[in-house]
């Protein structure tokens, strides 16, 4: 993820300008920025605050309230592990421990090589085929330790191929 340069600033300004007149514009704006840039940079906060005529503290308060929004750049891939009950009943606690060990990071952390960010999630709606994780945009069901290892290996080969 690149730094917050002139181009990112312009992108944030454009998003705010385009959406600021929507009723309840805050969340749509935050989503649009995070979708485009992966996270919400501190410098974006003042642009949003100006656009919506709110204080920076108010904008920050909203960002920090919602688990989905992040203020630091994510890794190249994001893996979410479901921690809710239906997945627990199918061994997600053990899976979670395995995932952390395999990736060498805990929740809300990004691997040192910036490849993977790990996040908890509370239900992906795939509770009939638990345990569930989400790898980037894709939900995966009936995840075992070995299935997880395969998925991670695929991610690293893909990363090599794109380079």
């Amino acid at each position: 993820m690149t730094a917050f340069n002139e181009q990112s600033r312009q992108q944030v300004c454009d998003i705010v300008e385009e959406m600021k007149n929507l009723p309840g514009a805050m969340l749509p704006i935050l989503h649009a920025i995070q979708d485009a840039q992966g996270y919400i940079h501190a410098d974006a906060v003042s642009i949003i605050a100006d656009g919506l005529a709110q204080s920076r503290a108010e904008v920050h308060g909203v960002i920090s309230f919602y688990h989905h929004f992040r203020t630091t750049p994510p890794g190249k891939h994001t893996i979410q592990v479901c921690r809710a009950e239906a997945c627990q009943s199918m061994g997600s606690r053990q899976l979670e421990a395995h995932v952390k060990e395999k990736l060498g990071i805990g929740f809300h952390q990004t691997s040192a090589d910036q490849q993977v960010s790990l996040e908890p999630v509370y239900c992906l709606g795939n509770c009939a085929c638990a345990p569930s994780i989400q790898v980037n945009d894709d939900v995966v069901g009936r995840v075992t330790a070995s299935k997880f290892d395969q998925l991670v290996d695929q991610l690293s080969t893909q990363a090599l191929e794109v380079k």
Partner: peptide
């Protein structure tokens, strides 16, 4: 459609 942001 409006999206939530991961808050139960």
């Amino acid at each position: 459609v409006r999206l939530g942001a991961g808050a139960y």
